[in-house]
């Protein structure tokens, strides 16, 4: 379980995140919405251990973020908004490259299966020849090589076609329910958020998102 208690983040006098508390259970997908600059990426970076909070505590599986940062990183998968893969490699080479550097060893068959499970079947294809959707899937697959318990996704479907978007969405749902992962997901696409997520965290003062989400009937936490 991920427990966030009274979390705040400021840069000098400017407060980005103020007094946020929530929990995420295994099998749960939590959507993160808010206007640009509301602090979604900052919150995701704090949850990924890349930034330290100004105030508050966070614990994942009872491991405190302040004292177990390195150990926590083995339990976290982070999918950056930009596609962080080797363009000159094939899908296979990318998977093998990051597997060799990963905390968990997986053989080629397991790596290929991971890609196939999200319909990424162009194993020998150079990445530069792949569509945007395929690249996004590979970006996600690499983050899952070490079987993280908490998966953080920063706009993982930005700029891709509807079919790939749906495929990624249904894969994330099955990942959460079948493999008991905790998933936190940011997106500007409200349809996607309401269809994939179990709960939604709305950051910022913009009533637009809150009204939109309340009408969808999803459990909502607003900050």
């Amino acid at each position: 379980m991920l427990e966030v208690h009274s979390l705040s983040k400021s840069y000098g006098n400017k407060t980005i995140i103020q007094d946020i508390s929530f929990t995420v259970q295994p099998t749960e997908i939590v959507g993160l919405v808010g206007e640009n600059g509301a602090g979604k990426s900052t919150l995701l970076s704090i949850l990924a251990t890349l930034l330290k909070p100004t105030k508050g505590t966070i614990a994942l599986e009872n491991l405190n973020y302040l004292s177990h940062r390195k150990l926590l990183r083995e339990k976290i998968g982070f999918v950056p908004q930009d596609i962080a893969i080797w363009d000159n490699f094939t899908v296979e080479e990318n998977m093998i490259f990051f597997e060799k550097l990963s905390w968990k060893n997986k053989n080629n068959k397991e790596l290929r299966q991971l890609c196939l499970s999200m319909n990424l079947d162009k194993w020998k294809e150079p990445v530069k020849n792949l569509s945007g959707g395929m690249k996004r899937k590979l970006n996600l697959a690499i983050s899952l090589i070490h079987d993280p318990e908490l998966l953080l996704l920063d706009e993982p479907t930005a700029g891709i076609d509807l079919k790939s978007r749906k495929e990624i969405g249904s894969y994330l749902k099955s990942l959460a329910t079948e493999h008991e992962k905790m998933i936190i997901y940011t997106s500007h696409d409200m349809d996607e958020i309401t269809s994939i997520c179990d709960r939604v965290l709305c950051i910022g003062q913009d009533a637009f998102y809150q009204n939109l989400l309340e009408s969808s009937g999803k459990p909502l936490l607003a900050f």
Binding site: L50, A84, F98, L101, W103
Partner: peptide
């Protein structure tokens, strides 16, 4: 810079790598 984001979640830090 985009690949740097992978290093916290692998066995090696960027410097060690």
């Amino acid at each position: 810079s985009v690949l740097l984001l992978r290093y916290p979640f692998i066995r090696f830090s960027i410097k060690s790598f």
